[in-house]
Design a binder for these strands. Structure first.
Length: 174
DNA sequence: GCCAACGTTGGC
DNA sequence: GCCAACGTTGGC
Protein backbone atom coordinates (compact mmCIF):
# COMPACT_ATOMS: atom_id res chain seq x y z
CA UNK A 1 0.00 0.00 0.00
CA UNK A 2 1.57 3.21 -1.20
CA UNK A 3 1.57 6.51 0.61
CA UNK A 4 3.52 9.67 0.02
CA UNK A 5 5.47 10.17 3.25
CA UNK A 6 4.98 13.93 2.96
CA UNK A 7 1.27 13.23 3.29
CA UNK A 8 1.33 10.27 5.63
CA UNK A 9 4.39 8.22 6.56
CA UNK A 10 5.01 5.06 8.55
CA UNK A 11 6.01 7.34 11.45
CA UNK A 12 2.70 9.16 11.20
CA UNK A 13 0.95 5.81 11.45
CA UNK A 14 3.01 4.85 14.50
CA UNK A 15 1.88 8.10 16.16
CA UNK A 16 -1.75 7.88 15.07
CA UNK A 17 -4.54 7.19 17.52
CA UNK A 18 -4.57 3.44 18.14
CA UNK A 19 -1.78 3.34 15.57
CA UNK A 20 -4.57 3.04 13.06
CA UNK A 21 -5.83 4.99 10.08
CA UNK A 22 -8.46 4.70 7.41
CA UNK A 23 -6.72 4.27 4.07
CA UNK A 24 -8.73 7.11 2.56
CA UNK A 25 -8.18 8.86 -0.72
CA UNK A 26 -7.85 5.93 -3.09
CA UNK A 27 -9.56 7.04 -6.33
CA UNK A 28 -8.72 4.19 -8.63
CA UNK A 29 -11.23 1.42 -9.18
CA UNK A 30 -8.76 -1.42 -9.31
CA UNK A 31 -7.11 -0.36 -6.07
CA UNK A 32 -10.53 0.13 -4.50
CA UNK A 33 -11.57 -3.34 -5.58
CA UNK A 34 -8.53 -4.88 -3.94
CA UNK A 35 -9.57 -3.28 -0.66
CA UNK A 36 -13.21 -4.20 -1.12
CA UNK A 37 -12.81 -7.76 -2.35
CA UNK A 38 -9.39 -9.09 -1.48
CA UNK A 39 -8.35 -7.59 1.84
CA UNK A 40 -9.56 -9.08 5.10
CA UNK A 41 -9.11 -8.21 8.74
CA UNK A 42 -5.87 -9.75 9.95
CA UNK A 43 -4.18 -9.66 6.55
CA UNK A 44 -0.78 -8.07 6.43
CA UNK A 45 0.54 -5.46 4.04
CA UNK A 46 3.65 -3.48 3.31
CA UNK A 47 3.63 0.26 3.88
CA UNK A 48 5.36 1.74 0.85
CA UNK A 49 6.72 5.28 0.61
CA UNK A 50 6.17 6.71 -2.87
CA UNK A 51 6.94 9.97 -4.68
CA UNK A 52 9.77 10.85 -2.36
CA UNK A 53 13.59 11.00 -2.39
CA UNK A 54 13.88 7.35 -1.39
CA UNK A 55 10.88 5.30 -2.49
CA UNK A 56 10.59 1.85 -0.96
CA UNK A 57 9.08 -0.32 1.73
CA UNK A 58 9.05 1.37 5.10
CA UNK A 59 7.12 -0.97 7.35
CA UNK A 60 4.49 -3.59 7.99
CA UNK A 61 0.82 -3.02 8.74
CA UNK A 62 -2.23 -5.16 9.31
CA UNK A 63 -5.76 -4.73 8.07
CA UNK A 64 -7.89 -3.84 11.09
CA UNK A 65 -11.26 -3.04 9.52
CA UNK A 66 -12.93 -4.27 6.35
CA UNK A 67 -13.76 -1.92 3.51
CA UNK A 68 -16.28 0.78 4.40
CA UNK A 69 -17.23 4.04 2.67
CA UNK A 70 -14.39 6.52 2.42
CA UNK A 71 -15.63 9.58 4.35
CA UNK A 72 -13.59 12.03 2.31
CA UNK A 73 -15.67 11.41 -0.82
CA UNK A 74 -18.59 13.25 0.84
CA UNK A 75 -16.51 16.13 2.17
CA UNK A 76 -16.64 19.09 -0.20
CA UNK A 77 -13.60 20.60 1.52
CA UNK A 78 -11.46 17.50 0.98
CA UNK A 79 -9.11 17.12 -1.96
CA UNK A 80 -10.64 13.65 -2.27
CA UNK A 81 -14.20 14.95 -2.57
CA UNK A 82 -16.22 13.19 -5.28
CA UNK A 83 -19.38 15.08 -6.26
CA UNK A 84 -20.76 11.96 -7.94
CA UNK A 85 -20.64 9.92 -4.76
CA UNK A 86 -23.68 9.84 -2.50
CA UNK A 87 -24.20 8.33 0.91
CA UNK A 88 -26.84 6.08 -0.58
CA UNK A 89 -24.46 5.00 -3.32
CA UNK A 90 -20.89 5.55 -2.18
CA UNK A 91 -18.32 5.15 -4.87
CA UNK A 92 -15.17 4.78 -2.79
CA UNK A 93 -14.36 2.51 0.11
CA UNK A 94 -11.31 1.97 2.27
CA UNK A 95 -10.02 -0.50 4.80
CA UNK A 96 -8.37 0.54 8.05
CA UNK A 97 -4.73 -0.32 8.62
CA UNK A 98 -2.89 -0.64 11.91
CA UNK A 99 0.82 -0.24 12.51
CA UNK A 100 2.77 -3.44 13.07
CA UNK A 101 6.40 -2.54 12.60
CA UNK A 102 8.72 0.00 11.07
CA UNK A 103 11.42 -1.75 9.07
CA UNK A 104 14.57 -0.40 7.55
CA UNK A 105 13.74 1.38 4.33
CA UNK A 106 14.03 -1.24 1.61
CA UNK A 107 14.54 0.88 -1.49
CA UNK A 108 12.70 0.24 -4.71
CA UNK A 109 16.02 -0.23 -6.48
CA UNK A 110 16.92 -3.00 -4.05
CA UNK A 111 13.59 -4.71 -4.57
CA UNK A 112 14.18 -4.60 -8.30
CA UNK A 113 17.45 -6.42 -7.81
CA UNK A 114 15.80 -9.43 -6.18
CA UNK A 115 15.30 -12.51 -8.31
CA UNK A 116 12.55 -13.73 -6.01
CA UNK A 117 10.55 -10.58 -6.80
CA UNK A 118 10.92 -10.67 -10.57
CA UNK A 119 7.18 -11.15 -11.09
CA UNK A 120 5.95 -8.81 -8.40
CA UNK A 121 3.13 -6.56 -9.54
CA UNK A 122 4.54 -3.55 -7.69
CA UNK A 123 7.70 -3.76 -9.76
CA UNK A 124 6.03 -4.18 -13.10
CA UNK A 125 7.16 -1.44 -15.48
CA UNK A 126 4.56 1.25 -15.78
CA UNK A 127 2.66 0.09 -12.72
CA UNK A 128 0.96 2.99 -10.97
CA UNK A 129 -1.52 1.17 -8.80
CA UNK A 130 -1.35 2.36 -5.22
CA UNK A 131 -2.49 -1.00 -3.89
CA UNK A 132 -1.20 -4.26 -5.34
CA UNK A 133 -1.39 -7.87 -4.18
CA UNK A 134 1.65 -9.63 -2.74
CA UNK A 135 2.16 -13.39 -2.91
CA UNK A 136 3.25 -15.34 0.16
CA UNK A 137 6.61 -15.99 -1.46
CA UNK A 138 7.10 -12.29 -2.17
CA UNK A 139 6.03 -11.41 1.35
CA UNK A 140 8.55 -13.79 2.88
CA UNK A 141 11.36 -12.65 0.61
CA UNK A 142 10.78 -8.99 1.44
CA UNK A 143 10.43 -9.52 5.18
CA UNK A 144 13.73 -11.40 5.06
CA UNK A 145 15.30 -8.51 3.14
CA UNK A 146 13.93 -5.98 5.59
CA UNK A 147 15.44 -7.88 8.51
CA UNK A 148 18.83 -8.16 6.81
CA UNK A 149 21.37 -5.36 7.00
CA UNK A 150 21.23 -2.82 4.23
CA UNK A 151 23.67 -3.58 1.43
CA UNK A 152 26.85 -1.51 1.63
CA UNK A 153 26.70 1.67 -0.43
CA UNK A 154 29.14 2.04 -3.33
CA UNK A 155 32.66 2.86 -2.10
CA UNK A 156 32.99 5.98 -4.22
CA UNK A 157 30.64 8.33 -5.99
CA UNK A 158 30.08 7.65 -9.65
CA UNK A 159 32.71 9.31 -11.83
CA UNK A 160 31.70 12.67 -13.21
CA UNK A 161 31.14 12.72 -16.94
CA UNK A 162 32.04 15.52 -19.29
CA UNK A 163 28.35 16.17 -19.85
CA UNK A 164 27.54 16.60 -16.16
CA UNK A 165 30.60 18.84 -15.64
CA UNK A 166 29.44 21.06 -18.49
CA UNK A 167 25.98 21.16 -17.03
CA UNK A 168 27.31 22.12 -13.58
CA UNK A 169 29.51 24.81 -15.10
CA UNK A 170 26.59 26.21 -17.05
CA UNK A 171 24.40 26.22 -13.96
CA UNK A 172 27.11 28.02 -11.98
CA UNK A 173 27.23 30.95 -14.39
CA UNK A 174 25.70 34.15 -13.03
C1' DG B 1 10.92 19.48 -13.74
C1' DC B 2 10.57 15.86 -17.14
C1' DC B 3 8.27 12.28 -19.15
C1' DA B 4 6.34 7.58 -19.88
C1' DA B 5 2.55 5.00 -18.85
C1' DC B 6 -1.79 4.74 -17.60
C1' DG B 7 -6.80 5.83 -16.37
C1' DT B 8 -10.78 8.78 -17.13
C1' DT B 9 -13.76 11.74 -19.65
C1' DG B 10 -16.75 13.14 -23.09
C1' DG B 11 -17.92 14.02 -27.96
C1' DC B 12 -19.52 11.58 -31.66
C1' DG C 1 -18.47 1.71 -28.27
C1' DC C 2 -14.52 4.26 -30.10
C1' DC C 3 -10.85 7.20 -29.32
C1' DA C 4 -8.54 11.68 -28.73
C1' DA C 5 -7.65 14.77 -25.22
C1' DC C 6 -6.62 15.43 -20.82
C1' DG C 7 -5.20 14.49 -16.04
C1' DT C 8 -2.51 11.76 -12.75
C1' DT C 9 1.11 8.87 -10.97
C1' DG C 10 5.56 8.25 -9.67
C1' DG C 11 10.41 7.23 -10.75
C1' DC C 12 14.28 9.61 -12.06
Amino acid sequence: MKSEPDEFSIDDLARAKNRTTSWFGVRNYQARNYMRDEMHVGDHAFFYHSSCPEPGIAGLVTISAPAHPDRTQFDATSPYYDPKATRAAPRWVNVDVTFVEKTRLVPLAELRGQKALAGMLLLRPGNRLSITPVTAAEWNAIVKLARAAAPAPPAAAAPTTVATRRKAKKAARP
